[in-house]
C-alpha cells in the first residue's frame, strides 16, 4: 500500500518534471486524498500497531470495577429513591418524590443538618486550620526536627478508626477514664461525653481529628515545602513578620492544596464519622450524633426504609458535588498563583 501511494506521488512528480507546470486535476485529487489517508493511518499507527484493543484490555479491569461499584449505584439510588421498599419484600411501590418530601419536612431533618454543620465546623478546626498552621511552622519557622515531628504526628493516621473509637471511649469514660481522673484532680466533674447532645459531636469530631490530622498535615506540608525558598528569603529581607509571611506569601502560594484539603476534610470527614458513631453511639443520644452520612445507614440497615436511605444518599451526593464544583471553580480562578 505504501508503495502504491509512493508510485502515485512519483508519477505526479514526473509529470511536473516533464514541464507540466500545474498538476493535472486528477493527480492533484489523488495526491490530496493520499495525504489525508496518510494522516489517518499515521494517527492509528502511533497508537501502537493500529490496535485499539490493547488499551481496552488494560483499562477494562479498573473501569469495570469502578463503574459497577461506584457509578451504577448512583443510578440505582436515584431509582430506589422514588420507591417505597423494605429491602426484602418483592413488592416495591413507586411513590415519586414522596421520599424526598417526607425527608425535608421531617422533624429530624433539621437536627441532621445542624449536626452535620457542627461536625463540619469541628472537623475544619481540627483537620484543616490546625494542620495548616502547624505545617507552616514546620516548613518555615523551624530549622530542625521537622522530620521527627512529621513522622510522629502522622503515626495515628495508620491506625484503624475502630481502634481509635475504642481507645477514646476508654479515655473519655466519665467514671474511671484517664480524662475524668485528670478533671477531678482540678475539681471538675467529667461530663458524660457520649450522652450529651452537642458534646457527643465534638468528641466524635476529635476522634476523627486524631486519626486524620497527620494525613492532612503532610498534604499541606508538601505544598508548604514547594513554596520557593527565595520568596521566603526575599520577604525576610523586607523584614516581614511571621504573620505577614503567612498571610501574603504562604496563603496565596498554597491555596490550591489548601482548598483540596478543605474539601476532603468535609467530604471524607463526614464519612469517617460512620465508624465511631456506629461503634459508640448508634446515632444517639436521641439522634444527637447522627449526620447526613450515618442517617443513610440507619434508614438502609436499621429501619429498613430503602427508599428514604436512597433519597438521603442522593442528597448527600448533591451536597458533595456542590463542594467539588466550588473547589474546581475556585481552583480555575486561582491557578495563576501557583504557576
Amino acid at each position: 500500500m505504501n508503495l502504491e501511494e509512493a508510485e502515485i506521488r512519483m508519477a505526479s512528480h514526473k509529470a511536473q518534471d516533464q514541464g507540466e507546470q500545474i498538476l493535472s486535476n486528477d493527480a492533484y485529487i489523488q495526491y490530496a486524498a493520499m495525504i489525508k489517508n496518510a494522516a489517518k493511518h499515521w494517527r492509528r499507527t502511533f497508537c501502537e500497531a493500529g490496535s485499539i484493543w490493547q488499551p481496552v484490555v488494560f483499562l477494562t479491569p479498573a473501569t469495570l470495577v469502578l463503574f459497577v461499584f461506584a457509578y451504577w449505584p448512583l443510578l440505582q439510588d436515584v431509582w430506589l429513591s422514588f420507591h417505597l421498599w423494605n429491602m426484602i419484600s418483592p413488592a416495591m411501590k413507586f411513590v415519586g418524590l414522596q421520599n424526598y418530601f417526607q425527608l425535608v419536612t421531617s422533624a429530624e431533618f433539621i437536627k441532621i443538618i445542624t449536626n452535620t454543620v457542627l461536625y463540619i465546623v469541628v472537623l475544619l478546626l481540627v483537620n484543616f486550620l490546625l494542620p495548616y498552621l502547624l505545617s507552616f511552622m514546620m516548613a518555615h519557622l523551624l530549622k530542625r526536627f521537622s522530620f521527627f515531628y512529621r513522622s510522629a504526628l502522622f503515626a495515628p493516621s495508620t491506625v484503624s478508626l475502630a481502634v481509635a473509637s475504642i481507645l477514646f471511649l476508654w479515655i473519655f469514660n466519665p467514671l474511671a477514664g484517664p480524662l475524668s481522673i485528670l478533671l477531678s484532680a482540678v475539681g471538675l466533674e467529667s461530663p458524660r461525653w457520649f450522652k450529651e447532645p452537642v458534646l457527643v459531636v465534638i468528641v466524635i469530631g476529635l476522634i476523627i481529628g486524631w486519626k486524620v490530622f497527620g494525613y492532612n498535615l503532610i498534604l499541606l506540608l508538601s505544598a508548604m515545602v514547594d513554596v520557593p525558598k527565595e520568596l521566603i528569603e526575599a520577604a525576610r529581607i523586607e523584614n516581614a513578620s511571621d504573620w505577614q509571611l503567612f498571610r501574603y506569601i504562604i496563603v496565596p502560594m498554597t491555596s490550591s492544596t489548601a482548598l483540596y484539603v478543605f474539601v476532603i476534610t468535609i467530604v471524607f470527614g463526614l464519612q469517617y464519622v460512620l465508624v465511631p458513631v456506629n461503634m459508640l453511639t448508634q446515632g444517639g443520644p436521641d439522634q444527637g450524633s447522627t449526620n447526613l452520612v450515618y442517617i443513610v445507614y440507619q434508614y438502609g440497615f436499621v429501619f429498613f426504609q430503602t427508599g428514604k436511605a436512597a433519597a438521603f444518599a442522593i442528597l448527600s451526593m448533591v451536597i458533595y458535588a456542590l463542594f467539588l464544583m466550588l473547589k474546581t471553580k475556585v481552583l480555575d480562578k486561582k491557578v495563576h498563583y501557583e504557576n
Binding site: 502511533f46 497508537c47 469502578l66 464519612q271 452520612v293 438502609g300 436511605a309 442522593i314 451526593m317
Partner: peptide, 28 residues
C-alpha cells in the same frame, strides 16, 4: 502509553469515583 479518543474524559470519570461517598454505594 496510548492515545485514544475521550482519554481525558475517561480518566476524569475514573478519578471522580474517589469522591463518590460510601452513602451512595452502600445500599445498591
Amino acid at each position: 502509553y496510548y492515545e485514544f479518543s475521550h482519554k481525558e474524559k475517561l480518566f476524569n470519570a475514573l478519578l471522580l469515583t474517589f469522591f463518590i461517598p460510601i452513602t451512595v454505594v452502600m445500599v445498591p
